[in-house]
């Protein structure tokens, strides 16, 4: 009696599992997408030296001749985004007000690390900030590097700059 029940149960289990395996093999169809953040940006905030109130600015990349290459859009009002140069250890930027008036220039010295993320996404460049220089020193007062890593986590606030002459 026990043996008969055992055989019936095992027969059913065998059938169920073989069917599951069959269904699994029929539904296995892979589609892979790039799920990584490939847009690596750092963020910078500028403040008035005395009042400590934030200045809404955005940045533009600058080439070796001092010409503007491209404006960098901001993701949040008082946070300016910056993208570091993947081919150089120094990136220079114009600091601009919302109506594109230049209020400063900065140079960020950094170390780059290129990373092959995966087959779907390709390559991105991560960086570590070493130094931040305000090029027009008469208008700059102080700089603080809050977070050195410029990586795929764009919520990091990397740099704070306090500017004089805009009170």
């Amino acid at each position: 009696m026990m043996r008969k029940t055992y055989n019936m149960v095992s027969k059913r289990v065998v059938g169920v599992l073989a069917s599951i395996a069959l269904l699994l093999s029929l539904t296995m169809c892979e589609t892979d997408f790039c799920n990584e953040n490939m847009y690596v940006v750092g963020t910078l905030r500028t403040f008035h030296k005395l009042s400590k109130s934030p200045i809404n600015v955005f940045l533009a990349t600058m080439d070796a001749n001092g010409d503007t290459i491209k404006y960098i859009g901001n993701t949040s009002g008082s946070y300016a985004n910056f993208v570091l140069n993947p081919e150089s250890d120094t990136s220079r930027f114009y600091i601009l007000t919302a109506d594109t008036v230049e209020i400063g220039k900065i140079a960020i010295v950094h170390t780059n690390r290129n990373e092959f993320v995966n087959a779907e996404c390709g390559v991105r460049t991560l960086s570590t900030i070493d130094t931040v220089l305000i090029e027009n020193a008469s208008e700059g007062d102080s700089v603080a590097i809050l977070f050195k890593d410029v990586d795929e986590n764009y919520d990091n606030e990397n740099i704070e700059i306090f500017l004089a002459g805009f009170e």
């Binding site: 093999s25 290129n114 092959f116």
Partner: peptide, 28 residues
């Protein structure tokens, strides 16, 4: 280490016997 002096990190995204590392994988 690349010829231009920069470094290049490679995170293998496929492995023989596993497939794509973008998640757990079912197989039969």
């Amino acid at each position: 280490d690349m010829p231009d002096g920069s470094s290049f990190d490679v995170k293998q995204s496929y492995s023989p016997g596993y497939g794509n590392f973008n998640g757990s994988k079912w197989g039969v």
